[in-house]
Every structure is written in C-alpha cells, then in structure tokens.
Design a protein around this nucleic acid. Structure first.
Lengths: 236, 236
DNA sequence: AACACTAGGTGTACGCTGTATACCTGTCAA
DNA sequence: TTGACAGGTATACAGCGTACACCTAGTGTT
C-alpha cells in the first residue's frame, strides 16, 4: 500500500502535466470552477504544490492558452494569402470551439507569451507573403483583432429576452411576451421574424453562428484585398 | 453629532444612487477593486444594505452598463445611414473611453437588460431606415459585433514583448532584446519597424488606437454598403 | 561513508470575496 | 394603537489565491 502510494507519487508532476490537467479540468467543469484547489485535488496533490510549477494562477492561464495555440493547424503551404488566412482562422475557430473556456481567457490575458507572439508573427507573415505592405499589414492585423482567434464578441444575442430557464410557460405568456417585444423593440422584432422564416422554431434565434462568423470574416478579407489591390497606404 | 449622522442617514439610498456610486468608484479605483464591501463603505453603509437595492453583484454590473448606455448620444436625425451609424458608434466609443472598466463588463454580461436591448434595437433601426433588408441587417449586426459598443478586442498588442515594468534597462539589454525579437518574430519585427518610422520612439508601438478603430469600422461599413447596393441576400 | 544541497510536496494561516440568514428600527396606514 | 413593511445591521459561512515555514527524498561532492 505504502509502496503503491510511493510509486504513484514518484511521477513528479511537471509543468506540462499541470497545464494538461488544467485544460482537461476546464473542459470538463468550466472556467468558473477551475480553482487552484480543485486542480490540485484532481492531481492528487496539495494546492500549494502547484506553485512549484506555475508562478500563480495568471501564469497557469497563460500556459493553458499556449496549449490550445499548439492545437491550431499550421498555415497551409502554396496557396494565395486569402486562402491561407481564411483556413488558419477557421482552424483556430475549431480549436476554440473545442475549449469554450478559452475565449474569455484569451480576452483577459495581459501579458503575451512567446507562443502567442509566434502565432501572431505567423499571421503577419501570411499577409507579407501575399505582397501586402508593412503598413497595410499592420492595420489589417488590428482590423482582424480577435477574429484571428476564431471568435467574435457575440454581443448581439438575439435569443428571446430572458425567460429561457423557465422550462414551461403558458401559450398566453409567450404571446404576451411577443407582443411586448414587438412594442418595445420593433426593429429587433422585425429581423427576428425575418430570420425565423428560414428556421423551424418561432422563438428560436434562427442564427447559424458559423455562417455569421464567416460572413464577417469574408467581408473583412474582401476589404483587405480591395485595399491591397489599390495600393492603399495610411498616408491617405 | 448624532443629529447629523441621523440627518445624513435620512437620505435613504435608492437604486440609482447605488449605481451612480458604483460607476464613480469603478472610474476611480478600477474594476478589480470594486467590491460590494468597498462600495458599501463608500456609501457609508454596511455591505448587506446594498442587497436591498440590487439582487447581487451581477445585477449591479448590469445596472452600471445601463448607466453608460444612457451616456451614448442618440442617433443624429436626417442623415444617411452610414453617417448615422458611424457617429453613433464613435459616440459609444467616447463613452467607453470615459469608463475603461466598461469594456470587460460588457463582454461578460450574460443577461441583456431592456436598456441594452433598446440600444441594439435602435441600431437595427438605423440599417432598416437606410433601406437594408431584414436579412442583411441581421448579418450586418453580427458582423458589427462588439464594435457597436465602440471597442475592438485589442488582441494585437504590439508593445515590446514584456519588460515594460522594469524602469531601467541597459542599452545592451535593449539591443539584445531587439535582436532576439528580430530573430524570433521576424514578421512582427518588420511591421514594428515600419510603424516606428511614422513615430518618434523606436520601442513604442507607434499605434493610434482611434485610427485603427476607424480603419476597421469604415472597412466594415464600406462592405455593408457594397452588399446593400448589390441587393445581397443570404440565400446566395 | 558522511555531508550538504536542492527540487518538490505539505500544513497552516491570512485576508479577501459574495452573500444567506436573522434581526432590528423607524415610518406610515388602518 | 397596532401592525406591516421598507431598509439598514450583525454575524457567519464557504470559497478563493497565495505567503511562509517546514519536511523529505534524492543527488552530487568531498
């Protein structure tokens, strides 16, 4: 017994294992439940033991981001810049969708790790390789912003105004809510109704996130292309 | 003395005053220092007293967002949609720059208050009034995303790779860092150097946030306009 | 073989957070 | 006068990140 415990303990818990366990735990229980204590418990170790491998929780999160950066496919070779960028962004998106906690974590990073710098560097490289000027590339990177990571700030949440945790609402209540919605937010109501036509459920939002993402991405990429073709410079 | 305290206490602390104090406190000490205890102290009251006016901290933050939504100028009348949208976004941006804590708070809201719904509704209205179809308006709103609030996910932070808290670094160390940067991130280095040409400091990022924001905003607005002119629909 | 050094796990403790619960008190209506 | 109730209070709890001191097993040196 003591032998077994000792044998189990002998694997000495390095940084990589801590990060890997953290990613797995966040995948499983969500970011808000990822605490140092919980992670330590998952690793069969006392909380303070983690601090021998990461400086603090911020650095743990940094490391977790690095981990998912490693999951993003490298740029495809021998393709026009637009294709290369597009595919890479969509690959990043797939990685982020696998780890829903990653978006808020990326958003709140203050320091930039070498892995992240490397990722950004390769993005810049794709535009430069496509013949973009340094100037245009710079602004284009800013315009891309978080879309480089495959996500958009989903601020336009057109699901019904609240009332989604209630499992059962009467038909009348639903109708009253729709009436209220139509009166208070007539424009939102119009596009919600229009979107619902392409969809089955009346109350559902009728949104295809992936479509919306690619819509905006392509809008930007087309804009970039146009500016590039007309040799745009920030000078005017 | 007791009289005075009682007299001061007589103003009974309503919801509006709590929100107003919360906004002021966040402006002053930052979001991370805004705790229920600290806010209560600021109002000369015991922490739990706040819970008679807001359900919990989340609702407090919701209310704070509503407050700054109220600071955004209404749409200018009698102008083409592009102008109306542009000015409104820039007004939102000014409001958000006055309250730096607002960005992360908006990003993390889960519920949508009536005030926020109203703000989004008016945005939708601007496009519809400009002759956009419901369909196009819908996707355009998604593409706008958080830019509707006047901010972009500033994920492309091209300040020097760390080393910014150290107040004094030797010239050699600086040169070594530059060399390391040039080797490890050659593409970032190229655009950093190019940007620095328009700027005074070599190590500074040489970025005009406002310019970058408007660059991306106009890129999107131009894209919207083009789609609108060619009667784009999501059907293909 | 004896020693010191060190990497890595442990235990305890501190100050901070949001908030549940129970209580009290002053004001106003009936 | 009574009783309800809005609004401020006091106490307490569970959770958090992490500083600090300690121990222990393994390694390399003399």
């Amino acid at each position: 017994m003591t032998q077994l415990v000792k044998a189990a303990r002998r694997v000495p818990l390095n940084r990589a294992r801590v990060l890997q366990a953290a990613v797995a735990l966040a995948d499983e229980v969500g970011l808000e439940s990822l605490s140092m204590r919980r992670l330590a418990q998952e690793l069969g170790v006392v909380p303070m033991a983690l601090y021998k491998h990461v400086a603090n929780k911020e650095e743990l999160l940094d490391g977790m981001v690095d981990t998912i950066v490693g999951e993003i496919d490298p740029p495809v070779p021998d393709a026009p810049w637009k294709t290369v960028v597009r595919l890479r962004v969509l690959s990043a998106r797939r990685a982020l969708l696998r780890h829903p906690w990653a978006r808020p974590v990326i958003e709140t990073r203050t320091s930039t790790t070498p892995a992240v710098l490397g990722y950004m560097d390769s993005f810049v490289g794709m535009f430069l390789a496509g013949g973009f000027s340094e100037d245009l590339t710079h602004h284009v990177m800013h315009a891309l912003g978080s879309r480089m990571w495959g996500f958009t700030q989903e601020v336009f949440d057109d699901s019904g105004s609240g009332a989604k945790d209630q499992p059962r609402i009467t038909v009348e209540a639903q109708a009253a809510m729709a009436r209220h919605m139509a009166e208070s937010y007539p424009n939102l109501f119009r596009i919600a109704v229009a979107a619902a036509h392409d969809d089955e459920s009346v109350v559902g939002n009728g949104c295809d996130d992936q479509f919306e993402f690619e819509f905006a991405l392509d809008l930007l990429l087309d804009g970039f292309e146009r500016l590039h073709e007309q040799n745009w410079t920030s000078g005017g």
